[in-house]
C-alpha cells in the first residue's frame, strides 16, 4: 500500500515537473531574449520603448473597460436567469445549458462575419431611424459596444459553467426559503443570502471573462477596433525583441489583473471570517 502511494506521488510529481518545464522554458527563453543586449549584458530598451509607444495606455484602458462592462452585462444576464431556473423552473435548466453552450460550436470568425453582416445591413434611407443610429452608436471606436455584445456571447459558456458549478454547491431553494421565512422579500433574500454564497462562482466567471476579453484578437481586429490585443499585434511586428517583450508584457498584465481579482475575492472572504 505504502509503495503504491509513493508511486502515485512520484507520478504526480513527474507530471507537474514536465508541465512546469513545458511552460517555464519557453517563458524563460523569451524573457532572456527580450532583455538580451547584442553588445553584451542586458537591456530593458524593448520594454521602455513599448511603454512609451503611442496608444499603449489607450488600448489597455479600452480593453479593461470592455472587460469590466462585459463582466457586468454577462452576470446581469446569467445570474438572474440561472437563479430563476433553479427557484421556479428547474425543467428549464437543460435548455439554458444548451443555449449557453451554443457559442462553443460557433467559430469566432463565423460569429464575427455574422456581426459584420448585421452592421452593414440597412439602406441609406433608414439612416435617420433609431435602429440605424443605434447600429452606428455601438461601433463608436472610443467604446465599441458591439465588442461587448460579441464578448458576452463568447464568454457565455465559460461563465455559465463557473456559475452552474457554484450553484450546484449551494442549496439555493432552501436558503431562499429560510431567508423569506426570516422576513426577507425575494430581492433581499437573493442579495443578502444567495449572492454572498456565490462569491467564488461569481469571481470565477468574472476571471474567465476578463481573461477572454483581454486576449481576444480576431473579432476586434476584423471589426477594426484597437483594444490591447490588437495594439500588441500591430506594435510587435517592427522589432523582434519588442514583439517578444509585447507577449511577455501582455501575459503579465493579464496575470496581474486576474491575481488582483482573486486577491479581492479572497480578501473579502478572510475579512469576513
Amino acid at each position: 500500500m505504502a509503495s503504491l502511494i509513493s508511486k502515485i506521488r512520484f507520478g504526480r510529481g513527474l507530471v507537474l515537473l514536465v508541465c512546469g518545464v513545458y511552460f517555464a522554458v519557453p517563458m524563460a527563453a523569451s524573457v532572456i531574449f527580450s532583455i538580451d543586449d547584442s553588445k553584451g549584458g542586458t537591456t530593458f530598451r524593448a520594454y521602455t520603448d513599448l511603454l512609451n509607444a503611442p496608444g499603449f495606455m489607450d488600448s489597455l484602458t479600452l480593453s479593461l473597460e470592455l472587460a469590466g462592462v462585459t463582466v457586468a452585462v454577462l452576470l446581469l444576464l446569467l445570474v438572474p436567469a440561472l437563479l430563476a431556473a433553479r427557484l421556479g423552473a428547474p425543467k428549464l435548466r437543460p435548455v439554458i445549458e444548451v443555449i449557453c453552450s451554443l457559442p462553443l460550436v460557433v467559430p469566432v470568425v463565423a460569429l464575427t462575419t455574422g456581426i459584420v453582416g448585421v452592421l452593414r445591413w440597412g439602406p441609406d434611407y433608414l439612416s435617420d431611424t433609431p435602429l440605424f443610429q443605434t447600429i452606428v452608436a455601438i461601433q463608436d471606436p472610443s467604446f465599441p459596444i458591439v465588442l461587448v455584445i460579441a464578448y458576452v456571447l463568447m464568454a457565455l459558456p465559460f461563465a455559465y459553467r463557473a456559475l452552474d458549478a457554484g450553484l450546484r454547491g449551494v442549496d439555493v431553494v432552501t436558503l431562499v426559503e429560510a431567508a423569506r421565512n426570516c422576513g426577507a422579500g425575494w430581492a433581499r433574500a437573493v442579495f443578502t443570502v444567495v449572492l454572498p454564497n456565490l462569491r467564488s462562482a461569481l469571481l470565477n466567471a468574472a476571471v474567465l471573462t476578463v481573461a477572454l476579453v483581454l486576449g481576444e484578437f480576431t473579432t476586434a481586429s476584423i471589426l477594426g477596433f484597437a483594444p490591447f490585443s490588437v495594439w500588441i499585434s500591430s506594435n510587435g511586428k517592427s522589432d523582434g525583441q519588442m514583439s517578444v517583450a509585447v507577449s511577455i508584457l501582455s501575459l503579465l498584465i493579464v496575470w496581474v489583473v486576474l491575481l488582483l481579482m482573486s486577491a479581492v475575492g479572497r480578501g473579502r472572504k478572510s475579512a469576513r471570517s
Binding site: D171, L175, A179, R180, N181, A184, N197
Partner: peptide, 17 residues
Amino acid sequence: HKRDAGMVFQSYSLFPH
C-alpha cells in the same frame, strides 16, 4: 416573509456565510 411563522428545515439551512 410576512407570515410570522418560524421554520426549521429538514436540510441544514443556516446561511453558510
